[in-house]
Design a protein around this nucleic acid. Structure first.
Lengths: 353, 353
DNA sequence: TTGTACGCGTTATCAA
DNA sequence: TTGATAACGCGTACAA
């Protein structure tokens, strides 16, 4: 049961049932464990003989030693893990954000711990576990439905929290893309095509992204001296878009719609279809967020692409910054939204080819 | 929530912004830390006075104590974390699998650590980190591109590994859905509609799911005494489907296609469009994997739904089983594939309404 | 140039 | 009924 016994047994048999530890490496290299540790961590105050260093490195190689994350986490009070809480991983919007965050985290030597939850309750539970059990050094929150209040509370705690794609008043750091400019760009495209009766199928009321996109839409319409018609959705999925699209279509004169996201846009397209309106000849459509789903839709959807992968990367960067001791700040990504012209939006008088 | 209270309650050597520890609870309840631990973990050998137990629980409540995952992990040599390695989180196929796995893991008191990677190299790196650093108790591998050999090696190590949606020869546990029956069901639907010249747009050659789906397709065609035409894709995305669809369309007499997954199906539809073939009047389409994207496509896609969320849950269950000491086994989910009839497949002579 | 000793927060075992 | 103590694997002052 003693340490020595286990160690020698391992050396003798080369048994693999336990991961090699610092002590195993030290024994093999015939040095003290602390030397191994300092060699591995590049301790600058360590003056070690070249031969000794070599023996250590050889032993590390030979045993395939990797420092244990739990032990290190306990000692350093740091986990090298970042929590990411989001409503659903499956969506074409969150996918790129996750990918960007994951990539940046990996570069920085962190792992991403995913905490998703379908309802607000389980999402909240996901928070509690990740943070209070000390499983992560900080948290990225991309869930739009969690109360601002709760996030502020979390942020006031021991670990930094970054709001992803939403702004929160108070001292919580946040990263967003320029939704407002994106919305304006989309609307201006419709205006430039000659549309005058444009409706906006928005997201759920009061959500931050909903508001910012609606602002952009209304600003563009106001600048053109036009009346802005807005129909709120109740979710960010296709069925919600379908319902909102149906409602918006009751307004006879609407010739174009700007939809707040890509999945609702599919719903709007379906609603138009079912109402006997063809796209783009009877109804032009532009939506926010580019994705393969939009590109391969029939007709291919004209969209405004936002830098989502960069959003994920920037969120991790900001969290790392806070972990380094910097005060929270709110950043908006500098990359401008870009219009991706395809075939769902055309001039109101033009008919399909 | 109870920060002020906790701060003042913390008696001895404690910086204020540290999480409360077992010792803090013990001090407040005026018992030994080991008693707190045993009360919390329901040690059956512990006979404790009711009043004492109450004091402990009150202290836990008051301090908002949560056991530290790192310390516990170190002591127990267990992390309550499961790694999930996959190619991309964004796809409509992996989304439900992740959701199912996440839900089941949460139920069992585990957290999911996501390790995704775009190329095989970074995926491999994700393995190495998660496993060898002892960050997870076991691994779920859903990445189709990782070498069987590598997975077998991993599985031979200290932590169990489960292959998700792919079978691997040897002693690795695996969970799959019945892709073959699904493919057969889809093909039989096309046959029942009266199609005789049916092509299969498959996945990348040699991948396990590709083979199983192709088997189902070929079995159905063989049973009908028909020649099976197969065009391999080179990925599971829409562009790959487009290219394969183009190739398949060169065969003039093909009146229907069975596509191995939903994103490639969008590509096939686009290829048909660009070739002047209308769906379903000129070409019927059925694909594997139901998803909102298929439901809201134009035309709505007839699909065969596979129990993907269940796949995620079952994968976690199987891993838990192995963690409990059971030998590896290969399971196929019992839920049968179900045909979701929509409007992309119709009788070859019928024209669009 | 290298070794010693201690503690991070937790649980298991034994002692009282 | 409860308390004391020894690890788990690692990093780091400090001693040699």
């Amino acid at each position: 049961v003693t340490r020595a016994k286990r160690g020698s047994a391992r050396l003798a048999a080369g048994s693999r049932d336990q991961a090699p530890t610092l002590r195993d490496v030290a024994a093999l290299a015939q040095v003290n464990p602390s030397v191994v540790s300092r060699v591995l961590n590049g301790d600058p105050t360590l003056r070690v003989a070249v031969a000794t260093r070599q023996r250590v490195m050889d032993a590390v190689q030979g045993l395939g030693y990797r420092p244990n994350a739990m032990a290190r986490g306990l000692r350093m009070a740091t986990t090298s893990a970042i929590g990411f809480v989001l409503p659903e991983a499956a969506s074409p919007v969150y996918g790129p954000i996750i990918a960007g965050a994951e990539a940046r985290a990996a570069e920085a030597g962190y792992v991403l711990v995913l905490g998703s939850g379908t309802d607000a309750l389980s999402t909240e539970a996901a928070f509690a576990r990740l943070l209070s059990e000390g499983r992560v050094d900080g948290l990225l929150v991309a869930s739009g439905t969690v109360e601002d209040e709760l996030i502020r509370d979390l942020s006031a705690g021991r670990h930094p929290v970054i709001a992803v794609n939403r702004r929160i008043r108070g001292t919580v750091g946040s990263v967003v893309v320029d939704d407002e400019s994106g919305a304006r760009l989309a609307t201006e495209h419709l205006l430039a095509l000659g549309h005058r009766h444009i409706a906006h199928v928005a997201g759920p009321p009061l959500m931050d992204t909903t508001v910012r996109r609606q602002n952009g839409f209304e600003a563009a319409m106001r600048a053109a001296g036009l009346k802005a018609r807005v129909v709120a959705g109740d979710a960010w999925d296709a069925p919600s878009g379908y319902r909102a699209g149906e409602a918006a279509l009751r307004e006879e004169r609407v010739t174009a719609m700007f939809v707040a996201s890509v999945m609702p846009a599919l719903g709007v397209a379906a609603a138009a279809r079912d109402a006997g309106r063809r796209i783009p000849s009877d109804l032009s459509l532009v939506c926010l967020h580019d994705s393969p789903v939009a590109a391969y839709f029939d007709p291919p959807l004209t969209t405004v692409a936002l830098p989502l992968e960069e959003l994920g990367r920037a969120a991790v960067d900001l969290l790392l910054e806070r972990l380094g001791g910097s005060p929270p700040r709110d950043v908006m990504l500098p990359q401008p939204p870009v219009l991706v012209e395809r075939r769902s939006a055309t001039s109101p008088r033009a008919k399909a080819p």
